[in-house]
Design a protein around this nucleic acid. Structure first.
Lengths: 207, 207
DNA sequence: AGGAAAAGCGAGTGAATGCTCGCATTATAG
DNA sequence: CTATAATGCGAGCATTCACTCGCTTTTCCT
């Protein structure tokens, strides 16, 4: 005997098969977004690419939006993982070492899947995921700010909130533009130079 | 006697009335994008808001995309006007004065119409306007780079291309995030502090 | 084995929307 | 004033697409 009504309206995957279906759907959505663009990502096409029927799609996702949201969440978790562990790793290092690490990680994070990152950035406002992404942003700011405050001795007198804002904006922008504009023609040497220069700028600013 | 076929397929407005129609359409598109969002910007709705019929719309714009492109172009011209004149004004000034001015102008440019700026930024890839926006970006880079090269004496040894990239990215990001995140609660004092801090960072980096 | 629940199916529905086309109205030229 | 071009109109066509529903197949449990 099962809980609730026999026809569960939606969500929840209990058997292994259905979990695979859910994964396939999310994966297919991501692939289509990257390879064919947002407009081609119709529910029918997603189901087709996932090797699943539309009906099944709607058993796990109440709407197309929910699918895109799932992709966004997966991608954000991936990035936040990198950022969190970088900041933990860096907690006891002096400012210059820490900034260098953070710049490096920012670029790495953007390189995970640049095209997906781009498409998602464009689609976030549409999915009502703005709130979640803002939360994600606030977490980054809070973590960086905490670090900066713990290193006040090495720094000149600055408003920590303002300094965090400027540093995070700068690092994020350099990483973003580097990966998205300069396409895939990024030699290791170029990246290293860029990291050095950005680090120099930020560190110079902080002390 | 007129040139060409009597039924001109599209484009071109010769009489005053039709120029007004074109303007109304572009203006209506911008208003809808800002006030109701991209998805509400159907051709029927645009025509309605412009006080014009769909048929007339299609006499001047071959597609919905073309309309959005026109809005983008108008907005970009507005911004480029600011940027060009700022860079001209700044050509003979030392680095610190110049950077301060550029940061100020960047924030001003973003404040022209923040909501429109946001919506357009999201929609650009969809309209095939990417190329035009890249051109616009390249112009900014070229102008800044020329300035920086003319001031080499005041600077440490840096690759001018790299320095331009980092400076433009930074200034753009700070302006962007300031206007888009901090909403409209921007006191003049906050803005001034931000300009000072950003200027300090960039100038410190350059020399 | 057999029954029930879970998972899967896909043709079909209804609504939205980009765009066309034949006609009406307004402006211009002779 | 009249003919012709320019501009404007808006009902409706064609298409796309999110989503539903009745049904079949697979899995689980005893």
């Amino acid at each position: 005997m099962a809980r609730k009504t026999p026809t569960k309206p939606r969500k929840n995957a209990s058997q292994a098969r259905s979990r695979a279906t859910v994964d396939a759907l999310v994966e297919a959505t991501a692939r289509i977004l990257v390879r064919e663009g947002f407009e081609k990502a119709s529910t029918n096409r997603i189901a087709e690419v996932a090797g699943v029927s539309v009906g099944s799609l709607y058993q796990y996702f109440p709407s197309k939006e929910a699918l895109v949201a799932a992709v966004i969440e997966r991608h954000n978790e991936e990035i936040m993982g990198l950022v969190r562990s970088a900041l933990a790793e860096v907690a006891d290092l002096p400012i210059d070492k820490a900034v260098r690490k953070l710049v490096t990680v920012a670029i790495e994070a953007h390189r995970i899947n640049p095209k997906l990152h781009r498409v998602l950035a464009e689609q976030i406002p549409r999915t009502g995921q703005l709130k979640d992404v803002e939360a994600f942003n606030r977490e980054v700011h809070a973590l960086v700010r905490t670090y900066l405050e713990s290193r006040r001795k090495e720094m000149r007198k600055v408003d920590p909130g303002l300094a965090t804002f400027i540093c995070v904006s700068t690092i994020e922008a350099v990483a973003h533009n580097t990966v998205l504009n300069q396409a895939e023609m990024l030699t290791e040497k170029t990246v290293r130079t860029l990291v050095e220069e950005t680090t120099r700028m930020v560190v110079g600013y902080l002390r």
